[in-house]
Computed example of a mutant assay.
Amino acid sequence: MTSQAYCTIPNFILDDLKTCIEAGIVPRIRHGISGNNHTTWRIRFSLWVDRDRGYPKYYDFEVEVIGSYQRFIDHRLVAGPGFDDVAQECTSMAACIELAKAKVAELEAKESST
């Protein structure tokens, strides 16, 4: 049996998780990785598209949240359709969610036109 260490989640991460839940998104979180004064957390979420023309589809996104001394510094949308290997700076978790939704709408429009 392996044991997992417990971690303390700072308030700014709790706020981000609450933002996801209020948007109807179930977040997944990876423990913060520390270095010097900074901690980097990863929050993943999926956007569900219920298509009229066929099967439903999930789009997965990942946000990197950086904090220092238990305070928020930066949000970056780092993975997802159209964002792989190109981090997109955002002002908040809500901004990351809106950007992801816009990207999904763009992809869905492109796919329905083909």
Rank of each mutant, 00 (worst) to 15 (best):
R53N: 11
S68E: 07
I21G: 01
R28V: 14
V26G: 03
C96Q: 03
I33E: 07
I97F: 04
N37Y: 11
H75C: 15
I66P: 00
G32D: 06
T40W: 03
S3I: 12
K110L: 15
Y55A: 15
F72C: 04
R30L: 05
V26I: 15
E111S: 15
A109W: 00
E89W: 08
E111C: 14
A79R: 13
I43N: 01
L14H: 13
I13C: 03
N11G: 06
P81V: 13
N11M: 02
Y55I: 15
A102P: 01
L107Q: 02
H31T: 05
C96N: 02
F72L: 09
D74Q: 14
I25S: 05
H31W: 00
K101Q: 13
A95K: 00
E22C: 14
P10D: 10
S113K: 08
P10E: 14
T8K: 11
K101M: 09
N11Y: 06
T91M: 08
E62A: 07
D16P: 04
V49T: 15
N11V: 08
T39S: 11
V65Y: 00
I21V: 11
Y55F: 13
S92I: 05
M93W: 05
D16G: 13
C7V: 08
L77I: 03
S34I: 00
T2Y: 09
C90M: 07
W48H: 13
P10A: 12
E108L: 11
A5K: 06
D74W: 04
E22Y: 10
Q88A: 15
K18S: 13
N11W: 02
S113H: 04
K103C: 08
S34P: 07
Y58M: 08
R71T: 10
E64I: 03
I73A: 05
N36V: 04
